[in-house]
């Protein structure tokens, strides 16, 4: 059980009408890994992330995420995953504390007040806990969004373009925070991450595993150590650069 892979995806395909968003995507991600997904716009990165995080269903193929069957047991899986998106997934007219308490109660966290207090301290928002989220800066909102995603101590965290719209200072805080939560996991089990980002440097720096998608197909999936940086840069420009041009 402890050596279980985080994600085992087999032939994940998403088709609708003539459009093939994902085409037989398969890979195996070990526990504790940080996967960075690269690819041009429309390559299927977000679709893949949405399928793995149970927000969308594959047309065919399947995946075992944290040992749960994506098609059979999406509900059980949801209790163990979190999502940090470019949208904060928060209610702007509720306070920071209310938002976190709401999430904690929905997930059935054992001691919601204690957990929320702890998280607010982690993301350094204790002083603003009673303020309505609408009054927060983009960076503060994003910090709260991180706390919101971690409220139930998920074993696998999905990150969907978490840097978009952040100013440099907010990016720095976000990185520190990510580093912190990466180290710490409540029950001592390694936490895994799965990130989609346009920022190649960030994606490379954080990753242990790399995945390049192009037109819904896997172009590259490898451990970072096994990839020659020059070769990766060439592949990356080849697929991602093409999308831009």
């Amino acid at each position: 059980m402890s050596e279980q892979a985080t994600i085992v995806a087999t032939d994940l395909t998403k088709v609708f009408g003539a459009r093939r968003a994902l085409d037989r995507v398969g890979f195996e991600l070990p526990a504790g890994a940080f996967l960075s997904i690269f690819g041009p716009n429309g390559a299927g990165k977000t679709t893949l992330l949405r399928i793995l995080s149970t927000l969308a269903r594959p047309t065919s193929g399947n995946a075992q995420v944290l040992g749960f069957d994506l098609k059979e047991k999406p509900g059980d899986l949801r209790a163990h995953i979190g999502l940090i998106s470019h949208k904060p997934l928060l209610y702007l007219d509720l306070s920071a504390e209310e938002n976190l308490l709401l999430a904690a109660r929905l997930y059935g966290v054992a001691d919601p007040y204690e957990r929320v207090g702890e998280l607010l301290a982690t993301v350094e928002l204790t002083a603003r806990r009673h303020d309505v989220v609408r009054t927060f800066s983009r960076g503060m909102t994003q910090r709260l969004a991180i706390a919101r995603a971690l409220v139930h101590d998920p074993q696998l965290v999905f990150l969907d373009e978490p840097y978009s719209g952040l100013d440099p200072r907010a990016v720095q805080i976000f990185d520190e925070l990510l580093h912190k939560v990466r180290q710490k996991s409540q029950d001592g089990k390694p936490r895994s991450f799965c990130m989609v980002s346009h920022d190649m440097d960030k994606g490379l720096a954080l990753a242990t595993h790399l995945l390049i998608l192009e037109r819904g197909k896997v172009v590259l999936f490898a451990r970072k150590e096994d990839v020659n940086p020059g070769e990766f840069a060439r592949l990356y420009l080849n697929s991602v650069g093409m999308g831009v041009a």
Binding site: A79, L90, Y91, L92, A103, T141, R148
Partner: peptide
């Protein structure tokens, strides 16, 4: 409107319910 405003509804959909 406010459920969509900042993806709040998506946050609820991620909860096992």
């Amino acid at each position: 409107a406010y459920e969509k405003e900042d993806g709040a509804l998506e946050g609820v959909l991620l909860v096992p319910l």
